[in-house]
Design a protein around this nucleic acid. Structure first.
Length: 487
RNA sequence: CGGGGUGUAGCGUAGUCCGGUUAUCGCGCCACGUUUGGGACGUGGAGGCCGCAGGUUCGAAUCCUGCCACCCCGACCA
């Protein structure tokens, strides 16, 4: 079984690549650092998208679309923001090609007067636009999200986890007051945490980023962090309180209720195709991908087992009825009636692709009016009577969703450690997982710890203050923070 | 962007040091037949600018130079 997948214990990153390729999620493309997301992988992304989109809309957000290109001058208006992204921008300088003796070349006569930056994120173009939309407090809040692609010219890429081009959603909101903007930042963080836990079955820790890990241009960055099976942390989503940084940079003022001009308060927030990486590395095993039922493009696959055409016809009509019954209940089902592959081959195929439940139906089953039900997360096989099927499948899907969350939550708990001295800290970090420890709040200490252990501060939890001594400097610390080696 | 490694059919590879018939093998693919309850078997067949561009040589997958891509390890990042 799973003959093309490297064992997780042998080589974790090879295992990850093998899953992505064998489950048919994505592949590398002819363009350096960019991936092709294949139909099955994209179907999972669409599930993610659909659920998140619902959650955004339920909280009053609407989708819009802003341009891919950003004039270079816009980009340089917010100083910290430029610094953060300058090193990884793709730049459009010309708009025409021509034929020459060396084949097709850039037409030097078609140089753009102002270069265009391929968006690494859209704050600048959006704030330039919001300037036109906002005059009064009556125009606020603006609660906009966009689903888009962005480009960050990464040197070292990995499918889904870090690619030069990636898909994401970016929310950009404008508010009357600081309080309201902070509330929005928190609301979104809660949505992200909820989504990850309830739909993706990925437990997360919530917190604030330190200054050095903060988004370029933000006052405060909140994040949800997840723990992968190799003990490394992965930032799964971020929500930024931008204060008045962008409204000042783009001169976006509004008349407040007292008739005075004031700069707008804002937020931005996003999750990306990186979530696909989180999904894979949280649940999958040596047999392949494991999908939580709520995100599986197919929750159930039906595999017919037969000898010869006659037997097939009989089984086919039984399977089709089962298919219809399940679909009527809103279950996503695939009936694989291809004759070109044998049942064993199909079993393997759907295990690698992480389909939660497999039904196999043959002559024996029809005679007993039952079928074999296989569960991907536990590898359990059971026989169910047909009249019990729908009920059982619905129950099993629920149970799997819960089981996957509980399993990864247990892993998170078992790999989160509290330590009080640096020796123990090094020890735990070396083994992987989150380590809660006192930190004096300075950037020097943070850098020092990173240099010595490769661990970074993943987040400062929202917990109550609990004074103590920094594990490395011995200076006063207000609370323990989460450290980990990270993706 | 630094250090290391690898590019041979769709995929995985032998051959490369030490140049010399028609480039090896497995999987996959196509046709036909037998099969079908955990990755079927037989017979026949198709498929290669040996990563790309130059060079050395009577002769290059093999030697030299440059470039490109991918993988691993660092710095940077969602």
């Amino acid at each position: 079984m799973a003959k093309n997948i490297t064992k997780k214990s042998e080589n974790y990153s090879q295992w990850y690549n093998d899953i992505v390729l064998n489950a048919d999620l994505a592949e590398t493309s002819a363009v350096r650092g960019c991936m092709v997301i294949k139909p099955y992988g994209y179907a999972i992304w669409e599930r993610l998208q659909a659920e998140l989109d619902k959650m955004f809309k339920k909280t009053g957000h609407m989708n819009a679309y802003f341009p891919l290109f950003i004039p270079k001058s816009f980009f340089s208006k917010e100083a910290t923001h430029v610094d953060g992204f300058a090193k990884e921008c793709a730049i459009v300088t010309h708009y025409r090609l021509k034929n020459s003796d060396n084949g097709i070349v850039v037409d030097e006569n078609a140089k753009l007067e102002e270069e265009l930056i391929v968006r690494p994120t859209s704050e600048t173009i959006i704030w330039d636009t919001y300037k036109k939309w906002i005059q009064s407090y009556r125009d606020l809040p603006i609660l906009v999200n966009q689903w888009a692609n962005v480009v960050r010219w990464e040197m070292r890429t990995r499918l889904f986890l870090r690619t030069a081009e990636f898909l994401w959603q970016e929310g950009h909101t404008a508010h009357e007051t600081k309080k309201e903007a902070i509330n929005e930042t928190e609301l979104i963080l809660d949505i992200y945490a909820d989504f990850l836990q309830k739909f993706m079955a990925i437990p997360v820790i919530k917190g604030r980023k330190t200054e050095s890990e903060r988004f370029a241009g933000a006052i405060d960055t909140y994040c949800v962090e997840a723990l992968m099976q190799d003990g490394k942390a992965l930032q799964a989503g971020t929500s930024h309180f931008l204060g008045q940084n962008f409204s000042k940079a783009f001169d976006v003022k509004f008349s407040n209720r007292e008739g005075k001009l004031e700069y707008v308060w804002s937020t931005s927030w996003g999750v990306s195709t990186r979530l696909m990486g989180a999904l894979i590395m949280t649940h999958s095993d040596d047999q392949g991908l494991v999908l939580p039922p709520k995100l599986a493009p197919y929750q159930v696959v039906i595999v017919p087992i037969y000898k010869g055409k006659e037997e097939f016809d009989e089984i086919d009509s039984f399977c089709t009825q089962v298919l219809n019954d399940l679909q009527t209940k809103g279950i996503r089902v695939k009936y694989d009636n291809r004759d070109s592959y044998k049942p064993g081959w199909k079993f393997n195929e759907y295990e690698v692709k992480g389909v939660p439940i497999r039904l196999s139906i043959g002559k024996r089953d029809i005679e007993k009016d039952s079928m074999e039900v296989f569960r991907r997360d536990t590898f359990e096989k059971k026989n169910y009577k047909r009249e019990k099927l729908i009920e059982s499948v619905l129950f099993m899907l629920e149970e799997m969703q819960t089981n996957l969350f509980n399993r990864s939550n247990l892993f998170l708990q078992e790999n989160t450690f509290e330590v009080n001295d640096f020796e123990e800290f090094k020890n735990k970090i070396e083994k992987g997982g989150f380590v809660l420890a006192h930190w004096d709040g300075t950037e020097e200490t943070e850098r020092e710890i990173k240099k010595l252990t490769k661990a970074t501060i993943r987040c400062i939890p929202f917990s109550e203050e609990e004074k103590g001594k920094c594990i490395i400097s011995g200076r006063l610390s207000e609370r323990k923070v989460f450290f980990a080696k990270a993706y």
